[in-house]
Amino acid sequence: MATTIPSAHGDVTVGDVLRTSRTYTVDEVREFRRLSGYSDNTEPRYLPYLLVVAPLTKLGGDIDYLSGRMSWTVTRPVAVGETITAELEITRLERGESATKIAFDARIRCGDEVVITGTSKGVVLTAGSGH
């Protein structure tokens, strides 16, 4: 029996891909800069790097993920207003006594163009099932 974990997308297992898309506005970029402690009134042209990976954070939240390590390669800046799509592909699930170890590959796309690739591993805090 494959190990599965609950998510906002239903139960998921190794090989499953979670996706979400988002388009950030100028006002949201300014709000993020205020949250970061670097408020200014300039017109942002590009998304802060952390907002580009934010949809992956959303997918992590969907599986109650606590990251241990993550590594990313970024190919180009993303302009404000571009729609970004995050994909999280589960590559490993290992059920433990108090948490489930997980590893995944991740991509951020703008349309068909992949702008970020990466990997991450950590734990899922909700109880998994199976072996």
């Binding site: 979400t20 988002r22 949201e28 709000e31 993020f32 949250l35 907002l51 934010a54 949809p55 954070t57 959303k58 992590g60 939240g61 969907d62 109650d64 993920y65 606590l66 805090l125 909700t126």
Partner: peptide, 10 residues
């Protein structure tokens, strides 16, 4: 959470 959509339980 609002800006990212990350409403993870923890």
């Amino acid at each position: 959470a609002r800006l990212t959509g990350d409403f993870g339980a923890h």
